[in-house]
Simulated assay, not measured.
Amino acid sequence: MDCCLSYNRPAVLNSLPSTVKPVKASSFTSSSNFTFNLRLFRPLGCLVRTSNRRALIVEASAEASRSQCDYSGLNTPLQPKSPAGKFLSSVLLNDRGYFHVAVAEQLEQLVADSHEALTRMNLSLGSDEACLHRRIAGLREHECQTAVEDVMYMLIFYKFSEIRVHLVPRLSQCIYNGRLEIWPSKDWELESIHSLEVLEMIREHLTTVVGWRANSNVTDNWATTQIQRLQLCRIYAASILYGYFLKSAALRHYLELSLDEVNYDLGISTDSHSPCSELWSYGSKNIVFGQTSRIRTTSLGQLSYSQEYNREKLKGYVMGFDPETLQMCAKPKSKVAVNLIEKHSCALFADEKMGLLETGEVISTSLASLKRLVLEAIAFGSFLWDTEEYVNSVCKLAEN
C-alpha cells in the first residue's frame, strides 16, 4: 500500500544537490574526496525575493545583542497542520510515554484510510460515481502526504528531545539588532549521537563550510562574523543531506565489516556449499551495494584482501565509493524526506512575518552559533534517515 504516492508540484529540492559530485574548485570540499556543491543551490522559491536594497547591519556587543531563542513548548520552525501531527504534538507535551504507541496508531490509521479510498475508487470504475471517488482518493492521498510529513517531523523532534536538545526556532526569533546568537549551544549533546569516526568527518565539514577550527579559542569562536542568510540556509540544507549521507554510509560500512567477520569466523571458503558461500563468492560489496566487486579471497585461516581493506576507517571507506554508490547513500530515498528537508529549511530561515528571504540580507553572528546550526542540521539528517526507515516499514513511501 503506497502512502503519499505522488507530488503534483515539481521536484521540491531543486536548490539542493541530488548527488555527491567529484571535487571541483567551485565547491566547498573536504579531504574525503567528495563534496556537496553549493553552486547547485538555486534560490529556494518559497523563500527568496530579489531586492536591490542593502541590508542594514547593526553592530552591537555580544552581550548586549545576544537574544534568547524561545525553546518553550513545541516551538519548532514547522508547526503540524494535519490532525495526526497536532495530536502527536499534544502527546509529546502531555504524555511522552504514550508517544510511540500513538505514532504507530496514527500510521496504521493513515494506511487504512488511504486503502479504503482506493478500494472505493476501484469498485466504482465504470459507474456514475467513479469521478467522485477518484477525487476523494486524490484528496485522501494529499491528506496522507501532509500527515506522514507531520508524523516524521514529530519523530525527529522526539529524537532531539531524547538528547535534551530543542530545534532552533525560526531565526527571526533569535536575531536581535541584526545579530544571531544561539544559546545554549548544546554542542556536546549534538555530537554525542555520532561515533568517533563520524565525528572526525563532521569536524572536517565544519572547517570547510564555516571555517571552524578545533584548536580555536573562545575569543575566536565568539568573534563577530557576517554571512548572508540565504548562504546560511544553503549550508544548513546541505548539512542535513550530509548527516543523512553519513548515517547511510556508516551503516553500510558496519554491515560490510560484519559480513566479512562472520565469514571469517565460520571458516567459509569459496569452495563451501554453505548458504553463505554464494554470498561470499560475489563479495560483500555486491550484497550491500548491488554491484559487482573485485574481491579475491585467500586460504582459510588468513584474512582476505577484502577484510583487510574494509577494516580501514570510515573516511577511507567513503573515499573508495564510486559515483553510483555516493548517490545511493546521499540521495533521500523517499519524496516525503525530500519535502521535509525543504519545508524545515524554509520555515527556519524565512522571515516570520513576510515569509520571504532577502537574497542580499546579511546577519552578524559568531562561529559558535554557526557550528550549532551545522551540528543541528547533521543530526537532523541522521534522525531523518532513522525515521524514514521506520515509517517506510509501516506505510510504504513513494520513492524519490
Rank of each mutant, 00 (worst) to 15 (best):
L88M: 08
A55M: 04
S72K: 10
R49I: 15
Q79R: 14
R66I: 07
E105Y: 00
V103P: 00
F87V: 05
V58A: 02
L78H: 04
E108K: 10
E59F: 12
A62Q: 11
C69G: 03
P77F: 09
R42T: 15
K86L: 01
A64P: 02
T50H: 12
I57K: 07
R42Q: 12
A112C: 04
V103C: 00
C69I: 06
L93H: 01
A62Y: 14
V103Q: 04
E105Q: 13
S82R: 06
S51F: 06
Q106T: 02
F87E: 10
N94K: 14
G45K: 14
T50R: 15
C69V: 05
S51P: 03
A64H: 10
Q106M: 10
P80I: 01
V101R: 15
A84K: 08
Q106C: 09
S82I: 06
L74E: 08
N94C: 07
A62W: 10
G45W: 11
N94S: 14
A104R: 13
V48N: 06
T50V: 13
C69T: 00
E105G: 06
V103L: 04
D70M: 05
D113Y: 03
L88R: 03
V91W: 03
F99Y: 08
L56G: 01
T76Y: 01
D113R: 11
A62K: 12
A102K: 05
L92Q: 09
P83F: 03
H100M: 12
L44H: 08
E63M: 13
F99G: 05
D95S: 15
V58E: 10
V111Q: 00
R96K: 14
P43I: 04
A55K: 09
L47M: 15
L74K: 08
V103M: 08
T76F: 08
A84F: 00
P80S: 08
F87P: 04
R49F: 13
Q79N: 11
L47V: 07
P80N: 01
L44A: 10
A60E: 15
S89T: 08
F87G: 01
L110R: 02
A102S: 14
S51V: 07
S51G: 09
E108D: 15
L107K: 02
P80F: 07
L107H: 05
V103D: 02
R53V: 10
L44T: 08
A60G: 15
A104F: 02
